[in-house]
Write a protein that binds this DNA or RNA. Structure first.
Length: 273
DNA sequence: ACGAGCTCCTGCTTGC
DNA sequence: TGCAAGCAGGAGCTCG
């Protein structure tokens, strides 16, 4: 489940392996892997072929290579991977030749790549994606104000990439656990101090996860060289159903949330008022 | 404008 | 043993 930490680990790997290289050739092996692109996969191939790769940028969970006229953008979705370490496989969707093979694999095909113009340094389809907590443009006070102005469950607000980007189901649950907030609490029911605490917890837990190389539950998330992260060892709430809360020992519970799951400590994370 | 719900997709796990 | 249902979920979309 690539969220900001996993995408950042991939970004660093890609920057190391692709910077200074040229796209000698590219083949789209699965048409669905090219999405949001204004044209067929053949146009995508034509646009990026020959491009020089200088740096890799990221906002939230989106990655892009700035090219002279457009950005080459990628999103890993649920199961996307970039690999520079081997041969194409059954889930390879796009194959680049940058002197060495650069492989975009995606088992569940929720991810994809496209090329599009940039406005103010940001690909056009990412204009509505808010800065993530590590972005110089991140405005903590503004995000606190937005969350406190909404009545939706605070977890839904944390996951809304238009408010603050990069947070997914894993790090939302971890941040809520760290700040001792029940995921269903309406944003408007939280104090400004508590929302700030929650945002700082999200930032802190994601920073630790980057250091750990991200969270790898299975082979669906690995770095560009195939190595796994190890932050799953440090998860306090997410996926920890029936296991003791690291703070108080109460078994973590799993609850349905928007057709998925939410994990919390029933003692540390109670609804207030 | 907001919030809830649905859809896309594959493969592993669970239950009858 | 086999089949079906459940589950994982990011992001864009529709609907009320």
């Amino acid at each position: 489940m690539p969220e900001l930490p996993e995408v950042e680990v991939v970004r660093r790997g890609l920057e190391h392996w692709t910077t200074g290289r040229d796209i000698v050739d590219v083949q789209v092996l699965h048409p669905r892997a090219v999405r949001r692109h204004a044209g067929p996969p053949s146009d995508f191939e034509a646009v990026v072929r020959g491009a020089h790769l200088s740096e890799v940028r990221r906002r939230g969970k989106f990655l892009w290579w700035p090219l002279p006229d457009v950005a080459l953008v990628g999103h890993l979705g649920m199961s996307g991977q970039f690999r520079v370490d081997g041969e194409p496989g059954e889930h390879t969707r796009i194959l680049f030749d940058i002197g060495v093979p650069l492989i975009f694999d995606d088992q569940r095909t929720f991810g994809g790549m496209w090329a599009e113009p940039m406005v103010d340094g940001l690909p056009v389809s990412l204009q509505h994606i808010a800065p993530d907590p590590f972005d110089p443009h991140y405005d903590r006070r503004a995000v606190v104000r937005i969350i406190r102005g909404r009545r939706a469950p605070v977890k839904a607000l944390l996951l809304d990439q238009g408010i603050v980007s990069g947070i997914g189901n894993i790090y939302a649950d971890e941040a809520l656990w760290q700040a001792r907030v029940h995921w269903r609490t309406p944003g408007a029911a939280l104090s400004a101090r508590k929302v700030g605490e929650l945002l700082d917890a999200a930032q802190e837990v994601m920073a630790r996860a980057v250091t750990a190389g991200g969270t790898s539950f299975d082979r669906l998330y690995v770095n560009v060289n195939g190595s796994s992260g190890y932050f799953q060892r440090d998860l306090a709430a997410y996926g920890q159903q029936d296991l003791p809360c690291p703070r108080c020992g109460t078994p973590i519970v799993r609850e349905p949330f928007a057709n998925r799951s939410s994990f919390r400590c029933p003692r540390c994370q109670r609804m207030r008022r």
